[in-house]
């Protein structure tokens, strides 16, 4: 259930969608991807409006990463990543070159690229998922709790790498997470959602210093360790 949501992500910026479970943040991402269509309202990517006619084309301009990677278990990492490029008629050398480039960027070795997802760790699977999303060099990247099931140490590394990659590639990113520190670290802006509506939109400082409601205060206080850092 979403109600009257308007958001705008500036090119090259990262917006983190955050909120308790069931607040509608994943649904919002699916709507942006055109996987479901809203009863009213519209999604626009660049100049193009999302519709059943434009959705295939728009999806080629958007990378999508979900929890646990969403990798196809019957295909190797390389096959997973090259599916869409093959469909679009890329040459074999073109695909290989792109994968090599992205593997280096995401710290995946080429031998790992030839393994089935089940032979890779959770963190590696997420990196492969990211390569797949970046493959067509889309302008927009959507991530749905990408690090939700990764253990904390690996998650820390991945967060660092994600930030580096987004900054390097200048992607427009929409990130769904339930972790405020992750949102604060990766997001240029944070949108806190509650019951299908946006409770507050701004950077992490505005959340701590000017909470718009009791709910925002509670949400921020639940991540106590951040409060000290916010002052520095």
């Amino acid at each position: 259930m979403l109600d009257n949501i308007s958001l705008r992500v500036k090119p090259g910026k990262t917006l983190a969608l955050i909120g308790p479970s069931g607040c509608g943040k994943s649904t919002l991402l699916r709507i942006v991807m055109g996987l479901i269509f809203p009863d009213s309202g519209k999604v626009q990517v660049g100049e193009t409006e999302m519709s059943s006619e434009t959705k295939l084309k728009l999806r080629h301009n958007m990378g999508y990463v979900i929890q646990k990677g969403g990798l196809f278990p019957h295909l190797t990492a390389r096959e997973n990543c090259s599916l869409a490029a093959k469909y679009l008629g890329w040459s074999e050398p073109g695909i290989t070159a792109r994968i090599t480039e992205l593997a280096e960027l995401t710290k995946i070795t080429l031998s790992q690229m030839d393994k089935l997802p089940s032979k890779l760790s959770g963190g590696q699977q997420q990196r492969i998922g990211l390569i797949r999303a970046l493959m067509l060099d889309p302008e927009v990247i959507l991530l749905d709790e990408p690090l939700g099931s990764i253990d904390p140490l690996v998650r820390h590394d991945l967060q660092t790498d994600l930030k580096r990659i987004f900054d390097t590639l200048k992607k427009t990113v929409l990130l769904v997470t339930h972790d405020l520190s992750e949102a604060a670290y990766l997001g240029d802006q944070i949108a806190l959602m509650k019951d299908g509506e946006i409770e507050q939109l701004g950077d992490i400082h505005s959340f701590i210093q000017e909470p718009r409601s009791e709910f925002v205060t509670q949400f921020v206080t639940a991540h106590r360790s951040l409060i000290g850092k916010a002052g520095t």
Binding site: R30, M33, L35, K55, L56, K57, L58, R59, H60, M62, Y64, I66, Q67, K68, G70, L71, F72, P73, H74, L75, L83, A84, Y87, R132
Partner: peptide
């Protein structure tokens, strides 16, 4: 979630059936 990933790649239904659904159901 796998079906969603397939659709999110911007693959048409025919390709999804051929490359994803049938092999997974094999």
């Amino acid at each position: 979630s796998l079906m969603e990933s397939a659709r999110a790649l911007g693959l048409p239904n025919q390709v999804i059936l051929q490359k994803i659904e049938l092999p997974l159901a094999l």
